[in-house]
Write a protein that binds this DNA or RNA. Structure first.
Lengths: 390, 390
DNA sequence: AACGTATTCGCAAACGTTACCGATACTTTT
DNA sequence: AAAAGTATCGGTAACGTTTGCGAATACGTT
């Protein structure tokens, strides 16, 4: 017979339905509902999972408490040299690896910096990563990288993932689509250090690391003008990006300074795949009155222009001057060499990393510089050198 | 006066030493030890930290239990549409972001794949990363990257960090120093999926993804021989690496097949910085009886050779044939173009990622292929084309 | 009335660590 | 010898989440 687990009554037990396919009973006396638990499986929670040795395992095997083990492992005080040694020995013997997850949970910090970049195709961002990676590793931090792939939704989901993973700080360079910044303001609200680099915006008040795009563009175009080029076209980046607008502004400023008229149909803005660069380059070079120089937003576009010119028999630099941006490795070797703007990518990565470390390591609110403008360098090569300067 | 917190006695209180710089008392009556807790700070645990909203906050604010909130958030069963909606609303209203750390701890999986690479200077590993990153992101996994910097101790500490962070699987390409593999065997013992790529070894029984280094090397050297080169030097990689040994083997095999004598002083093995490549190149080109072709272990070394030859007025390919390895972007554009071996880097990354996903996603032990050998492609350019093959 | 079924929700135990604070056993000082 | 100090160690709450199982309720069916 079944007896009530509470009042031990036997006679007043009645069936009371099923719950999860198990018969359920009720004791009419004490109004206690219950099901019969199978005494055969007293430890149903025991999973067959592979067990990683924990602090508790060590503690049990040498008969101390887990707090003692924790102290020994971290070299804290309040522990005798003998027990510490015993713990250390047992730890290495049992092949103990600390569980960083649990550590992070209780300390609510992860020793990890996140980085979101828009693309991986140009060597620019990989180089920034190298620079940041080095500094962070030195400081004992990890770096997780996510790629937004030039997509705003992906960027938003990336920031959410970073938030969920409780990174200690975020470095981000935005996509060309991004024109809403709520996903970044969350970081401000939460007090999580955030730094923008390269692809920045004005709507978030955090430190920013950029290059002097305006100056770089200005001196690149001025260099073309000083080499006797008159009608300079501009293959610019998407105008959603501040860098593109700055470079366009530099282009215009240099042209105006030297009294060159700007032909608006020779300014093309957009995101150039190799294919698109070729199409627009074709358009420019087949123009009725074609430009005698082209300032391109990046080296891959510039190189595409050069190849196109070579195919058409247009001589570089005599008939066409070309200047790129970024100084890709191949730019030094193509044809007469591509004049281009070298960007301090490693330094950019290092600077963002150093700054985020400052922000993360400081307990209190710390005054950070609002912006750092890194200096670029115009690398003059054959593609634009028409006058003999010595 | 001080009264015992237990028996409220006043007369029998005596000092009993200090504990952590606070006066300690004992009640002689009830033998109760105690210190005086400062009633001014009743909540000493309350940190001034910024509070991230948790599941419990949501639960409290709409008067349900946290299990209900958890179920609502994950779209589980056993919940009414109304409460689910209420939870969802409150969650977005309170700007809730789940704490992945806690989730990972209880699920003991992180949805993260780790990757350790030896260096970042050549475009090879960044490209592998791109390939793997894409596949993993599609599958909803994160990728953490660490760099061993060609140092064995760093590699070991990297693997420890990966272990501590409880990654779900590891992709690794080893340093040139690594000749002990205990740090990798830990993964086997723990049952954590592990894949070796590119820089592999025979001592660990896990899936490996490599390229056909022997064949690639063989056909590169054979290509030189078929172009009429006789005395071919080899600037090889460090012999600690299997890839270097395989390439050397391919070189020897091709030379032997065609009956060319191998001059051992024309085989130089090592890890070549740009500077070292120049030194060894100088040595080779200034040899009494200098080689008429050089097969280099990578493109940057090959390019250094080409630049050196140009400086010396040695004509390429007429007087010197050069073949590199990897097909860096700049190799297409330097001088007459550098003949080189193109490696399927993206495919390598994608393959390792797909394999590790298979291993991670399968609950049980799964039979994996032991090895995948990806095909390279000899890209013939001007630096080695001496005969007109149509 | 007695029983069966379905729906919805709460309790509490994990996950592995850290750190506060109390407890114990000594040694040293008065 | 009493009182005070020192050195070690253990108990336990907390970090934020998931989940198995039981409880409560409502309603339908003999």
């Amino acid at each position: 017979m079944i007896s009530c687990p509470k009042c031990s009554e036997v006679g007043s037990i009645m069936k009371a339905g099923y719950v999860r396919n198990k018969q359920r009973y009720v004791c009419k006396d004490c109004n206690y509902f219950f099901t019969l638990t199978n005494p055969e499986s007293p430890v149903p929670r025991k999973k067959a999972r592979r067990h990683q040795t924990t602090i508790i395992d060590i503690a049990r095997s040498i008969g101390v408490s887990n707090s003692t083990v924790s102290r020994a492992l971290h070299g804290h005080a309040d522990i005798s040299p003998e027990t510490r040694q015993a713990v250390l020995n047992m730890a290495s013997q049992m092949d103990y690896q600390p569980n960083q997850l649990a550590y992070n949970l209780v300390k609510s910090r992860t020793n990890t910096i996140g980085m979101i970049v828009p693309e991986f195709h140009n060597p620019f961002f990989p180089n920034v990563i190298i620079g940041a990676h080095h500094v962070l590793t030195e400081a004992g931090y990890n770096l997780t990288i996510m790629q937004s792939n030039e997509s705003y939704p992906v960027e938003v989901s990336n920031t959410k993932a970073m938030l969920a993973n409780r990174i200690d700080g975020l470095l981000i360079s935005m996509t060309q689509e991004t024109n809403n910044f709520d996903h970044l303001k969350v970081f401000e609200k939460r007090g999580i250090p955030l730094i923008l680099f390269n692809r920045v915006c004005d709507h978030v008040e955090v430190p920013k690391v950029v290059v002097n795009d305006f100056d770089a563009s200005f001196s690149a175009v001025e260099h073309l003008i000083l080499n006797g080029y008159e009608r300079i076209a501009h293959l610019g980046g998407p105008l959603t990006l501040l860098v593109s607008r700055e470079r366009l502004r530099g282009y215009r400023a240099a042209m105006e300074k030297h009294g060159k008229s700007i032909e608006e149909n020779m300014i093309i803005q957009g995101m150039f795949s190799q294919q698109k660069a070729r199409i627009y380059g074709k358009y420019l070079l087949e123009l009725e009155n074609r430009p005698d120089a082209i300032f391109a937003v990046n080296d891959s576009a510039a190189i595409e222009i050069m190849l196109l010119a070579m195919e058409k028999g247009i001589r570089i630099p005599e008939e066409l001057g070309v200047v790129g941006f970024s100084d890709n490795p191949e730019s030094a070797y193509i044809g007469p060499g591509l004049t281009t703007v070298r960007q301090p990518t490693l330094e950019m990565g290092a600077t963002t990393a150093e700054w985020i470390l400052q922000m993360v390591d400081s307990e209190t609110e710390i005054a950070m510089p609002t912006q750092k403008i890194l200096k670029t360098e115009l690398v003059v090569r054959g593609s634009s050198r028409r006058v003999c300067d010595i």
